[in-house]
Amino acid sequence: MARMKFLCDADRCIDCNACVTACKNENEVPWGINRRRVVTINDGKPGERSVSMACMHCTDPPCAAVCPVNC
């Protein structure tokens, strides 16, 4: 069975963590555990980028639906 694949556009990600929250809520992930996370590279420096890292387990991922910038 085919699975959804994620490609995050680092130029669009605003590090809002809505994807992390949606994943936790939809999958009832316990406190302190994340299936998804947002990583910021070069934090506070020129060239700073945020990238949403996915677990790629869902066939209908709630995290993709909540991104406010559709990255």
Rank of each mutant, 00 (worst) to 15 (best):
M1D: 11
M1T: 12
M1P: 12
A2Y: 11
A2P: 15
R3Y: 11
R3A: 10
R3E: 05
M4P: 06
K5R: 12
L7I: 12
L7D: 12
C8Q: 02
C8E: 01
C8N: 04
D9Q: 11
D9I: 08
D9Y: 10
A10T: 15
A10M: 14
A10C: 07
A10Q: 14
A10G: 11
D11H: 07
I14G: 05
D15T: 08
C16S: 04
A18G: 03
A18M: 05
A18P: 00
A18V: 02
A18T: 02
C19N: 01
C19Y: 00
T21P: 01
T21S: 08
A22T: 01
A22M: 01
K24F: 04
K24R: 14
N25L: 14
N27H: 15
N27I: 05
E28I: 10
V29D: 02
V29G: 01
V29I: 15
P30G: 09
W31A: 14
W31S: 13
W31T: 12
W31I: 12
G32I: 00
I33W: 08
I33K: 14
N34A: 12
N34H: 13
N34T: 08
N34S: 13
N34K: 13
N34G: 13
R35M: 13
R35D: 07
R35K: 10
R36C: 07
R36G: 01
R36D: 01
R36T: 07
R37G: 03
R37W: 06
V38S: 07
V38K: 08
V38E: 07
V38P: 08
V39D: 05
V39P: 02
T40H: 03
I41Y: 14
I41G: 05
N42W: 14
D43T: 10
K45C: 03
P46K: 06
P46D: 06
P46I: 04
P46N: 04
G47C: 11
G47P: 05
G47V: 09
E48A: 09
R49E: 10
S50Q: 04
S50G: 06
S50K: 03
S50T: 05
V51F: 01
S52W: 11
S52H: 15
M53A: 11
M53P: 02
M53R: 15
M53L: 15
A54W: 03
A54F: 09
M56G: 12
H57V: 10
H57M: 13
H57S: 14
C58H: 05
C58V: 06
T59A: 10
D60G: 07
D60H: 12
D60E: 14
D60M: 05
D60P: 05
P61M: 02
P61W: 00
P62A: 04
P62E: 02
C63V: 12
C63Y: 06
C63K: 03
C63Q: 07
A64M: 14
A64H: 07
A65S: 06
A65I: 02
V66K: 00
V66H: 00
C67I: 04
P68N: 09
V69H: 07
N70A: 14
N70K: 15
N70H: 14
N70M: 10
C71Y: 00
